Simulated scan of single mutants.
Amino acid sequence: MTTTYAALLRGINVGGNKKVPMAELRTLLQRLGHGDVGTHLQSGNAFFSSDRGDEDSLAAELSDAVERHFGFTVDVLVRDHAYLRAVREACPFPAAELEAKQVHVTYFSAPVDPGRFASVDPAAFLPEEFRLGDRALYLYAPDGLGRSKLAEVLARPRLLKGLTATTRNWNTVVKLEELTGA
Rank of each mutant, 00 (worst) to 15 (best):
168 R>L: 06
158 R>D: 15
178 E>F: 03
110 A>G: 11
163 L>T: 06
126 L>F: 11
102 Q>G: 10
175 K>R: 13
105 V>Q: 01
69 H>A: 14
55 E>C: 12
43 S>N: 12
31 R>Q: 15
125 F>H: 13
94 P>S: 10
63 S>M: 08
89 E>N: 12
120 V>G: 09
42 Q>E: 11
158 R>C: 07
152 E>A: 13
3 T>W: 06
17 N>R: 13
81 H>S: 15
6 A>Y: 00
98 L>W: 03
97 E>H: 09
23 A>Q: 12
178 E>D: 12
103 V>S: 02
125 F>N: 02
122 P>L: 08
36 D>I: 01
161 K>R: 14
30 Q>S: 14
17 N>G: 07
17 N>A: 14
106 T>C: 06
178 E>S: 10
80 D>E: 13
47 F>P: 00
131 R>N: 06
67 E>P: 03
166 T>L: 04
64 D>R: 14
126 L>D: 12
57 S>T: 15
171 N>T: 10
72 F>D: 04
50 S>V: 08
38 G>E: 10
151 A>N: 11
170 W>K: 00
124 A>D: 12
135 R>F: 04
96 A>F: 04
101 K>F: 13
69 H>T: 15
141 A>D: 00
167 T>S: 14
149 K>M: 04
170 W>Y: 13
46 A>L: 05
134 D>K: 13
57 S>A: 12
111 P>G: 11
6 A>T: 12
97 E>N: 12
173 V>C: 07
177 E>D: 14
116 R>D: 03
90 A>T: 10
1 M>G: 15
127 P>G: 09
152 E>I: 00
150 L>H: 04
65 A>W: 06
177 E>F: 08
102 Q>F: 05
113 D>I: 10
24 E>N: 11
19 K>Q: 11
113 D>S: 13
161 K>Q: 14
179 L>G: 05
73 T>G: 12
63 S>F: 08
152 E>C: 04
155 A>D: 05
55 E>M: 09
41 L>R: 07
9 L>R: 06
15 G>H: 09
137 L>W: 05
46 A>D: 02
161 K>W: 02
141 A>E: 01
148 S>G: 03
110 A>R: 14
114 P>G: 10
159 L>M: 09
39 T>E: 03
72 F>W: 06
180 T>P: 05
169 N>A: 06
39 T>W: 02
149 K>V: 01
87 V>G: 06
21 P>M: 01
108 F>T: 03
